[in-house]
Simulated assay, not measured.
Amino acid sequence: MKSGLRVAVVGATGAVGREMLQVLSDRHFPCASVRAFASPNSVGKLLDFGEDTLRVESLESISDPSVFDLALFSCGSERSLVWAPRFARSGCIVIDNSSAWRNHDKVPLVVPEVNAQDLDDASLGVIAVPNCSTIGLVQAIAPLHRNQPLRRVVVTTFQSVSGSGRKGIEELDRQTRQLFNAQGTEPKVYPKRIAFNVLPLIGEPDVDGYTAEERKLMTETLKILGDDQIQVIATATRVPVFVGHALSVVVEPVKAIDVDDARALIADHPGVLVTDAESVMNAPTPEDIAGEDLTLVGRVRRDPSSETGLALWIVSDNLRKGAALNAVQIAETMIQRRLLAPKHKGRQETQ
């Protein structure tokens, strides 16, 4: 048997689950074994994993989760609330991509380049991956916040259909083909047609007019940055793009940061690339980011409506850094911090 961790990928047939398998392979993650789990409807499907092929198993078939060292979850909040504690109680580290655990006081919400230290306090054995748009946002604004604390953040997202999973991708593809062939379209996934359109809501708004997607940005940002005094307002929209989320952001630090200094702070942050430093027309787009691991930033400029405000544009791959890659990076960081190792007789080994 190969040395390394015994890994379970739960929700392996979804868009993020498949990307998790791809990222594990791409990064040569130290796996002794990898098993793919999904709903009963997907049992028996074959998935590529590097040069190997995995046969999908039913999550319900697991009688003893202690056979795993690490479980990467992307199976939705409802199933995560049931299954993540079962894995964690067995000594398996769970890294969950749903929103189920993000606001739990004892569950770290982690972007490794921003708050890796929070992994030291994962007492429940569960670590949450932030919302896909939140990850790109905090990567870009964290270095600004460390230089001068931010008092206000205004963010508008332009989120691709892959944020809705495979069904969102299929709906955009189907509607685009129908319109090019002069056929009518019927929305099934979204409340209105997504092809050649922009939807100003992602989900139902609450009594104050904000959707759950917007609330995630407004709460998760504070938890990751460790500052509940920041005021965040978000508008989340859906756009007819297959992969890649873009964000238009305005921040207000307590004291002004020079534009060149701000650009340099962002460029020096791990996992971030400022693309238009040499050419102003090279601001990033979703086309640039698909399949990439970095978060791209451009159009850093002064906000003339505010004494200290700065505006910027952020783009990231919502399936990779916005989900699968961040999950795997959390696991890699836990290995580096000696928080994750192969188990022996149901407990994590430490050296």
Results as ranks from 00 to 15, higher is better:
Asp303Met: 02
Gly136Arg: 14
Glu57His: 12
Glu287Asn: 07
Leu109Ser: 06
Gly76His: 07
Asn103Gly: 14
Arg35Lys: 15
Leu5Gln: 05
Gly271Phe: 03
Val254Ala: 10
Asp105Thr: 04
Glu287Ala: 03
Gln183Phe: 12
Met20Arg: 09
Arg6Ser: 08
Ala32Leu: 12
Val9Ile: 15
Gly163Asp: 08
Ser74Lys: 03
Ala212Phe: 05
Ser3Cys: 02
Ile135Lys: 11
Val254Tyr: 15
Asp303Arg: 03
Ile95Thr: 06
Trp83Thr: 00
Lys255Pro: 02
Val161Phe: 00
Gly14Ile: 02
Ala100Arg: 05
Gly163Ala: 06
Arg263Phe: 01
Pro130Gly: 07
Glu287Arg: 11
Gly226Phe: 15
Arg238Glu: 11
Val126Glu: 03
Val251Glu: 10
Gly226Thr: 01
Gly309Arg: 09
Glu113Met: 03
Phe242Gly: 05
Arg193Trp: 10
Val153Arg: 03
Pro130Leu: 01
Asn326Pro: 06
Glu307Asn: 06
Glu170Ser: 04
Asn147Arg: 03
Val207Tyr: 12
Ala195Lys: 07
Ser133Arg: 14
Leu217Ser: 03
Val82Arg: 15
Cys132Gln: 15
Asp52Val: 01
Leu47Arg: 08
Leu21Val: 00
Asp227Leu: 04
Asn318Leu: 14
Val198Cys: 15
Phe158Lys: 03
Arg152Tyr: 06
Arg166Ser: 11
Gly226Ile: 02
Gly226Pro: 01
His104Leu: 08
Pro40His: 14
Ala246Gln: 09
Ser248Gly: 10
His269Val: 00
Glu332Met: 02
Cys31Gln: 06
Ile62Trp: 13
Ala327Ser: 09
Phe87Pro: 02
Phe37Ala: 14
Arg89Ser: 15
Ala234Met: 08
Phe49His: 02
Thr157Met: 06
Pro85Arg: 04
Ser164Lys: 08
Ser162Ala: 13
Leu150Trp: 08
Glu252Trp: 09
Val43Asp: 12
Ala36Leu: 06
Val328Arg: 06
Val274Arg: 00
Arg6Val: 04
Ser160Pro: 01
Ile314His: 01
Pro270Gln: 12
Phe87Tyr: 11
Gly322Ile: 07
Asp52Met: 10
Leu172Ile: 07
Met281Pro: 02
Gln148Cys: 06
Ser58Trp: 15
His344Gln: 09
Thr235Asn: 14
Leu247Asn: 03
Lys321Asn: 05
Arg215Gly: 06
Ala256Glu: 10
Leu273Asn: 04
Asn197Asp: 13
Ala277Arg: 15
Ser164Thr: 00
Val34Ile: 10
Cys75Gln: 07
Ser80Asn: 12
Ile127Lys: 04
Val114Gln: 08
Pro143Arg: 03
Arg18Cys: 09
